[in-house]
């Protein structure tokens, strides 16, 4: 089964990349875009199908490595084929 982890910066954490993208969008004429926040997506392939077990393992992976919980939030979802 596939799990997708979406990682985003917490509110209040500076996102210079997002700001640079915003400035570029504004330059292209998209002046109604007032803020851009970037993040990342990690797709995990598991060789098991037990949802509860897989979700719990994914959560552990996020806390131990994938996410820096000082500055990032995360969301775990099962990716349906």
């Amino acid at each position: 089964m596939k799990i997708v982890v979406n990682i985003s910066l917490k509110e209040g954490v500076l996102d210079p990349e997002g700001q640079a993208i915003k400035a570029s969008l504004n330059n292209l004429g998209f002046r109604n875009c007032s803020d851009v926040r970037t993040g990342k997506q990690i797709v995990l392939n598991f060789n098991q199908n037990n949802e509860t077990e897989t979700l719990s393992q994914a959560k552990k992976m996020c806390e131990k490595l994938l996410v820096n919980t000082v500055i990032e939030n995360y969301e775990i979802n099962i990716l349906k084929d």
Binding site: L14, P16, N68, V70, I71
Partner: peptide
């Protein structure tokens, strides 16, 4: 910092 030996975080330089 990543090993949690020191607290806080180091993020991208403000001006990229």
């Amino acid at each position: 910092i990543e090993a949690k030996i020191l607290p806080g975080s180091l993020i991208r330089n403000k001006k990229l």
